[in-house]
Computed example of a mutant assay.
Amino acid sequence: MAVGAKRGINPDSPLARLIAGPMRPGRLAWIGLRPARRAALVHVERAEVTVEAGLIGDHHAGRADGPRQVTLIQAEDLSAIAAFLGQAGPASPFDLRRNLVVEGINLLGLSDKRFRVGGVLLEATGGCHPCSRMNDILGEGGYNAVRGRGGLTARVIEGGEITVGDAVTVEG
């Protein structure tokens, strides 16, 4: 798919060239698995990822080619969410319920792209919008604090193992 095609951007435009421009690599900072719907996340240092099942041990596992096989959020957004709630320190990845926390790379820049986390190839499928439970988990205003900062959803194109510390790079 051409850069910006989902956004209706002319692929030959200066804006499309900027969007397709280089991005510094990021780093995988945290991995969490959701063993069951509404169950507490389990923090792990490494995880197996397959095309057929997504993250092994996550309740979304087994949904081949699903658009939410993996969810990601930026570490930088955890600090912003806490600030919007008037809290010191970053929000907890356990509360946001995303699988992967990455740092040093702008997830919005990965929209409509394929990217690697370690050796695993993912394809961004859309925004990971907050759910109504954010007010229950984060307190009053939690839903609005996460709006626009909920991260990305992705599907697995090539599986493998990921480990905290792996590079996050745009496939290109």
Rank of each mutant, 00 (worst) to 15 (best):
C131V: 06
D166V: 06
G8P: 09
L28V: 07
N106A: 15
S79Q: 14
T153I: 00
P90Q: 11
A5C: 01
G127M: 13
L107F: 07
G139Q: 09
L85T: 13
D12T: 11
D12V: 03
R68P: 00
H59T: 09
G127D: 10
V70Q: 00
A16Q: 10
F94G: 02
H129I: 07
I31F: 02
A154T: 04
R147Y: 01
N135M: 05
G66M: 01
G26E: 03
T169H: 00
A83H: 12
A61H: 08
L78S: 13
G127R: 11
S79V: 11
T153L: 08
D112A: 15
A53Y: 00
G26I: 06
N106D: 15
I137G: 06
R147L: 15
H129L: 11
E48T: 14
I137D: 05
M134I: 09
V49E: 06
E76N: 10
L96M: 14
S79D: 15
L18Y: 10
G32L: 09
R27M: 12
P130F: 12
P130I: 06
P90A: 15
E161D: 11
P90M: 05
G26M: 03
G127Y: 10
V120G: 06
A61C: 03
G119Q: 08
A91N: 04
G118A: 06
G159W: 04
G89H: 05
R7S: 15
I157F: 00
N99L: 07
T125V: 09
F94T: 02
V164M: 05
S132P: 00
E103T: 12
I162P: 02
A145D: 03
A82C: 06
P67E: 12
